[in-house]
């Protein structure tokens, strides 16, 4: 299993510098692939619509996921509910490339996450801080993303989560080895993983930004804050011109330091998703699965 875990972490490395887009149909998946997405997330409803619809949100229909797998050659990811290991088993059975154990769906277990070390397929999980990230990695996640606040088009939470993680990583690097034991206790994480962060100055797996990315500037902001790539959920297919916006976000992630280019990319993109502010939302997804 250790070799499998290594290969799974390495697939995430191949996705770096790329954009992973939420798609709900094979047609959208093809648009995403043509726009330069490095992977797609197959789901029945994008987070903004999940928010609007309310009710219990579950894993997507495997037939729908399969139709997307057949439509594109890039990796296909899909979401299972937090702690719903049977949904995860189903996604593994249809040979999904990555499972997102996601707070976007309604949690199936309010205490335990899926024991991801029991699976051959890789998992990505959301995190708001270093503690959450290292707990998910301890459970077997081979990729981390900020939680942000999905389906809002508001970048503030993703920024908060990325900054917090970075600041905690810097702190872990600065303390002495004997202080790491207490720090691991405070963060409620395994000492060995915290020691790795202390030694290398980074998470042991690839870290993407997610939740609220709506514009090329949002994507570049997250990259400059240290994200290794970006998930865009509702931001693309809830906007006026998905094709143009998708391809602009892809280019902004590659050249995230080039303000001139991003100015060009941001011009004439049509309407961005309307978005909802933090204090206007009823369901706070980031508080799920900590």
């Amino acid at each position: 299993m250790e070799e499998r875990y290594q290969l799974n972490k390495e697939l995430a490395q191949m996705l770096k510098g790329g954009v992973i887009m939420d798609v709900t149909t094979p047609e959208q998946a093809v648009i995403a692939e043509k726009a330069g997405a490095c992977a797609v997330m197959a789901l029945e409803r994008i987070p903004a619509d999940i928010r609007a619809a309310g009710g219990v949100s579950r894993m997507s229909d495997p037939a729908m996921i399969r139709s997307i797998q057949e439509a594109v050659s890039i990796p296909v990811m899909a979401k299972c509910r937090i702690g719903h290991f049977v949904e995860a088993q189903i996604l593994e059975a249809i040979e999904i490339d990555y499972i997102d154990e996601s707070e976007v769906l309604s949690p199936a277990d309010d205490i335990y996450h899926v024991d991801k070390s029991k699976f051959k397929v890789p998992f990505v999980c959301g995190a708001r801080d270093l503690g959450e990230a290292l707990r998910r990695i301890a459970e077997g996640a081979s990729m981390i993303r900020t939680k942000g606040e999905p389906g809002t088009g508001d970048i503030v939470q993703a920024v908060r989560h990325m900054r917090k993680m970075n600041s905690q990583i810097r702190h872990a690097m600065s303390i002495t080895e004997d202080e790491l034991y207490e720090e691991a206790k405070q963060l409620e994480v395994p000492y060995e993983l915290l020691k790795q962060v202390h030694d290398t100055g980074r998470l042991p797996v690839v870290n993407f930004a997610a939740g609220g990315v709506a514009t090329p500037a949002d994507a570049a902001l997250m990259m400059q804050l240290g994200a290794e790539g970006v998930f865009v959920g509702s931001g693309i297919f809830k906007s006026g011109d998905p094709v143009k916006r998708a391809s602009a976000i892809v280019q902004a992630v590659t050249n995230f330091n080039d303000a001139k280019l991003i100015a060009e990319l941001s011009s004439g993109l049509g309407e961005a998703m309307v978005g909802i502010n933090e204090n206007e939302i009823k369901i706070i997804m980031e508080e799920r699965g900590i």
Binding site: Q13, V19, G36, C38, S73, P75, V250
Partner: peptide, 10 residues
Amino acid sequence: GGESTAMRKL
């Protein structure tokens, strides 16, 4: 290594 379709587009 990476995604060849994404790289080609870029």
